[in-house]
Each structure stands twice: as C-alpha cells, then as structure tokens.
C-alpha cells in the first residue's frame, strides 16, 4: 500500500482517510473489480477469439497478466493498463523533455521513456522560419537553438524500426521553454486530450501538460513568433541575457507560477488525475483560503484538496445519475 508522504496529525489523518474512502466507494460503484497483479489469470470467455494486448501473455491456454494494473477490453482486444510505469509514447503526443546530448544533426531528449528520444535538426523549424535544406552551417549552429539541459516541447513523430522514438517541432508553439518551472509527475496522471497547451489568462501563465508526465509552468508568450526574435537578439548579446530574464518577469507572475506549480505538486502527491479544471480549482481554493505559496505544501492543504476532490466527484456522479 502506498502511503501519502505527508506528516499528518490525528484529525487530519482521519479526515484524509474519510475523503479517500469516499473516493473508493465512488470508484467501486462505477467500475467492477478489474485490477490484476503479475501472473494473475485474466478471465475470458472461450467462445469468442481475443487479441492479446500489452501486459498479457499466454500460458497453458490462459491469458495471464505480466503487469500490475487494470484490465481493459476494447472489442476483441484485452490488455492491461499499468499505473505507475514509465511513459508509453503514442504518435501525436505532446511531450516536454530535457536535452541531454547534442549529436550529429540531432538532439537527444530525456522524456521518461525507456530510451532517449531523438529530435532531428531536419524535423524542426529553424528560427528564421524559411523552409530549406539544412546546410552544414545549420548543423554547426545547432547549439544556438538548443543546448544541453534546455527544456523543450515537441510532438511524437514516429517510431523507428529499432524502437527508438523520433520527435518533431514543426510549429511555433513547440520549441525551447524558458522562464518557468518543470515538474515531473507520474505519466498516468495526465490524460491524453485535445489540448495540452493551456493559457491561464488571469495569471499570465502558460501551462503545458506533457503526456510523458513532464509539466511546464512558465510565463505566457503572447505571440509565439516573438520568441524567435528574442532568441536571435539573445544570441547577439549574450551578456545582457541574464539581466534581461530577471527583469522581464514581474514578481506577481513568478508568484503565480509557484502557486500553480505547488497546486500540481499537491495533486500529484495525492495521486489525482491532472486536468485543467482540477488544477484551477486547487489554485482557487488556495487563494480563497489566503494561503501562502509555501503553506500549500503543508499537510492541511493536502487534506483540504482531498476533501474538495471527493466532493467534486460525488457531485459529478450525482449529475450523471
């Protein structure tokens, strides 16, 4: 059993337990018991043929799980959806990664996958925005675009035959992320959605929920094209860059970034699904309570968020029923 790593006093413990129990009862009402552990037999009806998906294998005619997780059935396909595992990429996913290596015509990105992902120079738009063949000069200038330890946002392009992953960044919304915080959370908490880029207008903050569990909270850029100009200017006068960045962002924005980041931290310690709605609710809860940013990571706020979430889910199921 995974405990929540926050020190709680006795009343807080009971309140948290009650909230979690409520969540459990809601869940068990909606779903039948489909959790399996390694080497459990998955019940199937033998009349119809089935397709074995991820996390399953066959043993003496039975379908057996090779992972801990939840059994999912889609028509004939039977697979085990894991919870706490590394990221499993799908084509078109929006991911946030960190550059670990600048190699020949490519960057290698750490994205919480079993291998480093590859972002080719040819599969990204150059800062000048002109479509053309990449020359040797471009290759030499790769470090002006991304260097090691830069945080980059990109899209999953395809898998190579050998299982390695190719990325692309062909739009202005992708590229280097600056002035913000990177959070790493378990990827099962991020659901694939239509939108992973969110602009929280009231705070002037951008929120990118990467499918790989890397979440970016940073200052909002109005026109994405202006970043390109900034980058060019930066390369011309690298000495002023550090002064610029600290001057650029107002204190209020920096505070909001921290507040949003802490809201995400709380939700991920509690293991709640991260959607824009839930994150915003958590931020609002913290600001209506007049909590300081540092107090958000305290035990009391964890309990409050858990109670609020239980309430929210109860009202949702009532509305449905």
């Amino acid at each position: 059993m995974r405990g929540i790593e926050v020190s709680l006093n006795q009343t807080q413990k009971i309140r948290l337990q009650r909230a979690l129990q409520q969540l459990e009862s809601l869940y068990s009402k909606a779903n039948s018991n489909t959790s399996v552990t390694v080497a459990d037999t998955i019940p199937i009806s033998y009349e119809d043929t089935i397709l074995k998906g991820h996390g399953t294998s066959e043993r003496d005619g039975d379908v057996v799980a090779t992972l801990c997780g939840v059994v999912e059935r889609v028509n004939k396909l039977v697979y085990v959806r894991t919870l706490r595992a590394r990221y499993k990429p799908e084509i078109g996913d929006i991911i946030v990664g960190r550059v670990v290596e600048v190699a020949q015509k490519r960057w290698k990105l750490e994205i919480n996958f079993s291998q480093d992902a590859v972002l080719m120079l040819s599969s990204m738009n150059l800062p000048d925005g002109i479509q053309r063949r990449r020359t040797a000069v471009d290759e030499l200038n790769m470090r002006t675009i991304f260097v090691e330890n830069d945080v980059v946002c990109a899209e999953v392009r395809n898998f190579q035959n050998d299982g390695s992953l190719q990325l692309q960044a062909r739009s202005q919304k992708y590229g280097k992320l600056e002035k913000g915080q990177l959070l790493t959370i378990p990827p099962y908490l991020v659901k694939r959605q239509k939108h992973h880029f969110h602009h929280l207008e009231q705070y002037g903050v951008d929120l990118i929920l990467g499918c790989n569990g890397f979440v970016w909270v940073g200052e909002h850029f109005e026109a994405r094209d202006s970043i390109v100009e900034d980058q060019l200017n930066d390369t011309e006068q690298p000495s002023t860059k550090s002064n610029m960045t600290s001057k650029d962002m107002p204190l209020e924005t920096r505070r909001s970034i921290c507040r949003i980041a802490n809201a995400i931290r709380v939700l991920s310690t509690l293991g709640f699904n991260l959607t824009l709605e839930v994150i915003q609710e958590t931020i609002n809860l913290s600001s209506t309570l007049n909590l300081g940013i540092d107090e958000m990571l305290g035990s009391e706020f964890h309990v409050l968020v858990a109670e609020r979430e239980a309430e929210r889910r109860t009202s949702m199921t009532k509305r449905k029923g």
């Binding site: 995974r2 979690l20 809601l26 552990t37 459990d40 801990c68 709640f272």
Partner: peptide, 18 residues
C-alpha cells in the same frame, strides 16, 4: 505480496478517478 500489490493498484486507480 500479491495482496499488497493488488491493494496498491486499486488505491492508485480509485484515487486517479475517471
């Protein structure tokens, strides 16, 4: 061990919600 793992999986799943 099986019991512990199953309990853990269930807990993660219901906390995550839908």
């Amino acid at each position: 061990i099986r019991e512990v793992l199953l309990e853990n999986t269930k807990q993660l799943e219901y906390r995550r919600g839908l």
